[in-house]
Design a binder for these strands. Structure first.
Length: 104
DNA sequence: TCTTTACTCAAGG
DNA sequence: CCTTGAGTAAAGA
């Protein structure tokens, strides 16, 4: 995978998400002029680059986390923790999208 | 070429 | 609340 690649673009976009904000998979897809919501998640999963790319800031359009690093609930929990740490409020397993969504 | 996928929306139960 | 089904596009085998 190199630059110009779809997933590379996704990563670049995710890196641009400021702290205290989140983005949705759909939003990222829209920013890339595509409707491939799934491909966005795919790119993150394959790369799964928690250092360079803050994957935890990318969530579902419902405010749900969706998934994180493939496995069950542990990773998701960590993701929630990270989000809360950045100032994002979480209610009953959901992020308040209305307040914290970041639009590109 | 076919399958899988961290998605999303709409509809039905 | 849940499950399907359709729509979509990239990576992997």
């Amino acid at each position: 995978m190199r630059k110009e690649s779809f997933d590379y673009k996704v990563l670049e976009l995710v890196k641009k998400i400021p702290e205290g904000r989140v983005a949705t998979y759909g939003g990222i897809a829209g920013a890339l002029d595509t409707k491939a919501y799934r491909a966005v998640g795919q790119a993150l999963k394959r790369n799964k680059n928690p250092v360079r790319v803050p994957c935890h800031r990318v969530i579902c359009s419902d405010g749900k986390i969706g998934g994180y690093c493939g496995k069950g609930i542990k990773n998701v929990r960590m993701k929630y923790s990270l989000l809360m740490k950045e100032g994002i409020e979480i209610e009953q397993g959901r992020v308040d999208l209305k307040k914290f969504i970041h639009r590109f």
